[in-house]
């Protein structure tokens, strides 16, 4: 599988990572190499094999749907680059 510059730009946009124009060519080459190497899995016949979801065979535990924690917005937002009144602040979204 070969990845071109446009594909790199597309997945970078999906991942919300800004990639410099000058980097796209080399990234395309690196990703192509890695994906080419990964491609060897297609040699294997996995017909009828269940995809693994968890290495430990256990049922995910359930708990009562009730509030068990909270009530300290200042602590939760303590590391925010920008915050106000116990909220996170982001650039304006709605005009």
């Amino acid at each position: 599988m070969s990845v071109d510059k446009e594909t790199v730009a597309n997945i970078a946009r999906l991942a919300r990572v800004r990639v410099d124009e000058s980097h796209k060519e080399s990234l395309a080459k690196e990703l192509s190499n890695i994906l080419g190497w990964i491609e060897q899995l297609s040699e294997l016949d996995t017909e009828g094999v269940e995809p693994m979801t968890s290495v430990v065979s256990m049922k995910l535990p359930l708990r009562e749907d009730e509030v068990t924690d909270g009530g300290y917005p200042d602590k939760v937002t303590a590391n925010a680059p920008e915050g106000a009144h116990g909220f996170y602040a982001v650039p304006k979204v709605v005009e």
Binding site: R13, R18, N79, A80, P81, E82, Y88, V90, P91
Partner: peptide
């Protein structure tokens, strides 16, 4: 760039800030 750590490009749109 919202809840912790580095924030860059806060002058732009939300998506620009993420990127």
């Amino acid at each position: 760039g919202v809840r912790y750590g580095l924030r860059e490009g806060a002058d732009g749109s939300l998506d620009e800030m993420y990127e």
